[in-house]
């Protein structure tokens, strides 16, 4: 058998990493166990719950269903890299003010998928938010406040977008 590990280089939350990893290592395990980024959590083993959602090149994916070696050369953003310069991302703020989380376990995935959704659709309707989050399970909130938070963040981001200085925060 060839070498048990392969070298990968990728950017995670703005920092370049080069590591030797086993090919079987999942991206979420790489983030948690190799980089210590435990903000991204694992909720299932069948690609249903979405708790491990991160952005790869700006788009939401389930990091339990991607090998770390497949992330070679790509840019990954986790919940830990979402806020910039010590300021919370509008989605993070909205999740807090709308009480869009209880136990918090689904929250990293919810926020990251919401970021992906808003990048595609900056002003989603309630129904569009619900469908945009259909790959994320939450057992605490009944989703109502999550939907409200995403729409609030969208409104806030839209407000910012009208000012010339701001870019698209959601896509990083």
């Amino acid at each position: 058998m060839a070498s048990r590990t392969q070298t990968i280089s990728l950017t995670v939350d703005g920092v370049r990493y080069t590591d030797d990893v086993e090919p079987r290592l999942l991206l979420v395990q790489y983030l948690r166990e190799v980089l210590g980024k435990t903000g991204t959590v694992v909720g299932c083993d069948t690609t249903n719950c979405g708790a491990c959602t991160v952005l790869v090149d700006g788009r939401g994916i389930k990091s339990c269903t991607m090998l770390a070696v497949e992330a070679d050369g790509h840019e990954v953003t986790t919940i830990e890299g979402l806020s910039a310069n010590g300021e919370l991302h509008p989605l993070q703020r909205a999740f807090n003010t709308c009480h869009a989380l209880q136990c918090g376990f689904c929250t990293p995935g919810m926020i990251m998928q919401s970021a992906s959704l808003l990048a595609d659709n900056p002003d989603p309707s309630e129904e569009e938010v619900r469908h945009g989050l259909e790959g994320n399970l939450c057992r605490c909130t009944g989703y109502q406040n999550i939907v409200a938070a995403v729409r609030q963040a969208a409104a806030e981001t839209a407000g910012h977008a009208s000012s010339p200085a701001s870019g698209s925060e959601a896509t990083q």
Binding site: T47, G50, G60, K62, T65, L117, E134, G135, N136
Partner: peptide, 9 residues
């Protein structure tokens, strides 16, 4: 198909 994250990969 499936959900947005799955459609992205």
């Amino acid at each position: 198909i499936a959900d947005p994250q799955v459609r992205n990969r």
